[in-house]
């Protein structure tokens, strides 16, 4: 870790001013401190935003506003989240460990970086994300955890967040503040695919700060929702793949379908094609399988992760079949 200075933001304006001047935002530190220590990232100044407002508020219209500094643990335990957005509570609880969830903030979780081993090996591996143009050693290397959708020649890394998969499914909107004022971006548009610039991971502009996340009023498919994480050990492991699913049914037919996938791309993957294909159908395993296959038609497996296609198919079918059978 290079020498750096640490300041605690007095308020949001203070944080913004420092970020504009090049400081890095520090939330819980569960990813950034590690990246700094491994010399994957450098910073000369850290501005600690973890003690800014950390509330969860319901609006009159039924939206839920979540401040960026809310911890993953607090959000998962929040009664409204558990009742109205169980997929989000489950995704949060599937992530990391209790200790890390107590530290990690919502803002930091969104901005966490890939766990690709070649990205982390500063001394010994080439990585276009770390060093644009250097090359990618993950290709033809250990690419079991890597992307099957939306990857490029430059980068095949996946986004590791569980929470973001649920947020993508829920049509969450991310609130940003920056030198040019405030704006909001749907979470599904916040992360970008690698293309020729894998070092660019989000649409955040220099000097911009995540201030919070907004969830729309709960729909049927948000309430009747679940998150299933498939991993190499039963807990405390990153997803091999994960599925956030929700169903709204009317007279036995799908009125609303929500599906998002984790562990398959550089961003949480909202499966809109599959969702559209299901509308109006009875949620039979056959219909579900056909729909997710449509989504995965563009999948491009790497040397060691072709199994993810079948795994995603079976997991999506299982999650939605269970939801279809569950009482609303």
């Amino acid at each position: 870790m290079t020498p750096l200075c640490y300041v605690r933001a007095g308020d949001r304006a203070d944080a913004l001013a420092r970020v504009v001047n090049g400081a890095r935002c520090l939330g819980g530190g569960t990813n950034l401190v590690d990246l700094l220590r491994q010399n994957v990232e450098q910073a000369s100044e850290l501005v600690d935003v973890s003690r800014l407002d950390g509330d969860v508020r319901e609006s009159d219209g039924g939206e839920l506003f979540i401040d960026a500094a809310v911890t993953n643990a607090a959000l998962a335990a929040h009664p409204l989240v558990r009742r109205r957005y169980p997929v989000l509570a489950r995704a949060l609880l599937a992530g990391a460990s209790a200790q890390i969830r107590n530290m990690a903030t919502v803002g930091g979780n969104i901005l966490q970086r890939t766990r690709c081993m070649y990205f982390y090996d500063v001394d010994g591996a080439r990585c276009n994300k770390r060093q644009p143009g250097a090359g990618c050693d993950a290709r033809e290397g250990f690419d079991r955890y890597h992307a099957i959708l939306g990857a490029s020649d430059q980068c095949v890394a996946t986004h590791p967040s569980d929470m973001c998969v649920a947020l993508a499914m829920l049509d969450a909107v991310v609130h940003l503040s920056g030198p040019g004022g405030d704006r909001s971006v749907p979470l599904t548009d916040l992360h970008v695919l690698p293309g020729a610039t894998p070092q660019v991971e989000t649409v955040l502009q220099p000097g911009e700060l995540i201030t919070g996340v907004e969830l729309p009023p709960p729909s049927d498919a948000m309430v009747r929702s679940d998150y299933r994480k498939v991993r190499d050990r039963s807990s405390y492991a990153f997803a091999v793949v994960s599925v956030a699913g929700g169903l709204g049914l009317a007279e036995g037919r799908v009125r609303e379908a929500r599906i998002a996938l984790g562990g398959v791309a550089a961003k949480p993957w909202r499966a809109r094609r599959a969702e559209a294909a299901l509308i109006g159908l009875a949620p039979t395993p056959e219909a579900l399988l056909a729909a997710i296959r449509e989504e995965l038609a563009d999948a491009r497996p790497l040397s060691g992760n072709g199994f993810k296609i079948g795994l995603v198919e079976r997991t999506v079918v299982a999650v939605l079949t269970t939801l279809a059978g569950a009482r609303a």
Binding site: M117, D121, G124, F238
Partner: peptide
């Protein structure tokens, strides 16, 4: 390709956790 060990953390080398 390089003779280099890539799983150099306990997040990459999976020993059993309590739930296992």
């Amino acid at each position: 390709r390089t003779g280099r060990i890539m799983s150099t953390s306990l997040a990459d080398y999976h020993v059993p956790v309590h739930l296992d």
